[in-house]
Simulated assay, not measured.
Amino acid sequence: MARDLPTAEEFYSEVLGWAFRPTRLGEEFSVGFLDGTPVAGVGALADSLSVAVAWTPYFAVDDADTTAARIQERSATVAVGPLSFGTGRAALAADRDGAVFGIWQGRAIPDWSMGTDKAPAWLELRTRDAFEAAIFYAEVLDWACAQPGCCQVTYEDDHVVLRHQGDMVARITGGAVGEAPDPHIRPRWHVYFYVPDVDFAVRTAVGLGGRVVGDPGDPARADDWVSLRDPDGGLFTVTSSDPVPGLPH
């Protein structure tokens, strides 16, 4: 979600090479494509909403009402919905540590994936207790179930790793502090986007009003990945490498 949709489209077009197209959801929502492959959606926040600009992952579910009930039964929060939205139903929620995520029931707009080709590289949940969070999301989203197509959950190099059809799509890392003054290390979902040249992406982002998170040598940056904020403050990471479970952050 962005404050100014045209400005956000220009920024991500230049930094990540996306081309934006409108959707059936109206003028306030568009989808970014990379060489014809859908990558992510950007929507405009209403001026009256005093919420932070952020990238939010949405997880596909079979039944939004059932999933929302599971979230609430486990002492987490459903902030909005489930509501009818375009070709499906959606809800916005937060887990027990406050990390925000969404759920989506219905056909994707359009059909996209994670962790392969030009799609987002992967998601990372930075949370207080990785194992507790993994159990929560497995119960709520049917991870590690016996049905065909379910995600597999493993423990690799001190991370809980989520794979779908062999591709790493997300990981969960413990140690985040709920009351930390730096929001970068509070419990939150974080998105990594592939770029061919990290230095070029960083220079372009800074030239368009974005900024690097941390100073040179800070753990928020490395040779093949750097965390950035867009001009609205939205936090994301650009990377030129495949997911590595032992990657520092």
Rank of each mutant, 00 (worst) to 15 (best):
R3S: 13
A8V: 10
A8C: 08
E10C: 09
F11V: 14
W18K: 01
L25F: 14
F29H: 15
V31C: 07
V31I: 15
G32F: 06
L34S: 13
D35M: 11
D35S: 13
G36C: 08
G36H: 09
V39W: 07
G41W: 13
V42G: 01
L45H: 02
A46C: 02
V51M: 02
V53F: 00
W55K: 04
P57F: 12
F59P: 03
A60R: 10
V61Q: 00
D62Y: 01
D63P: 02
D63K: 04
A64M: 04
A68H: 00
A69S: 11
R70L: 12
I71G: 04
I71M: 01
E73Y: 00
R74G: 01
S75Q: 09
V80H: 08
V80A: 08
V80W: 02
G81P: 03
P82W: 05
S84R: 11
F85W: 13
G88W: 08
G88S: 10
R89C: 07
A90V: 15
L92F: 09
R96W: 06
D97G: 08
D97T: 14
F101H: 04
Q105D: 00
P110L: 13
D111N: 11
D111Q: 12
T116V: 15
D117S: 13
D117N: 07
A119T: 09
P120A: 14
W122E: 03
E124D: 15
E124Y: 04
L125T: 07
R126F: 15
T127H: 02
R128G: 00
E132K: 13
E132P: 01
I135F: 12
A138P: 05
E139Y: 08
V140A: 05
D142W: 08
D142E: 14
W143S: 02
A146G: 12
Q147G: 09
G149R: 05
V153W: 00
V153H: 01
T154R: 08
T154S: 13
E156D: 14
L162D: 00
H164N: 10
H164Q: 11
H164C: 12
G166A: 04
D167A: 15
V169F: 06
V169K: 00
A170Q: 06
A170N: 00
R171N: 02
I172A: 01
I172F: 03
G175S: 04
A176F: 09
A176P: 00
V177G: 05
V177D: 11
G178I: 11
A180M: 01
R186N: 14
R186H: 05
P187W: 08
W189V: 07
W189L: 10
W189C: 07
H190I: 08
H190A: 07
H190L: 11
V191E: 05
V191W: 05
F193C: 09
Y194H: 12
V195L: 09
P196T: 10
P196N: 09
D197Y: 09
V198L: 09
V198M: 07
V198W: 04
F200P: 02
V202H: 02
R203C: 09
T204D: 05
T204G: 01
A205K: 06
G209H: 03
R211F: 13
V212W: 06
D215G: 00
G217F: 08
D218L: 05
D223I: 13
D224P: 01
W225E: 10
D230A: 12
G233K: 01
G234Q: 03
L235K: 03
F236Y: 13
F236L: 13
S240G: 15
S241T: 14
P245R: 04
P245W: 11
G246S: 15
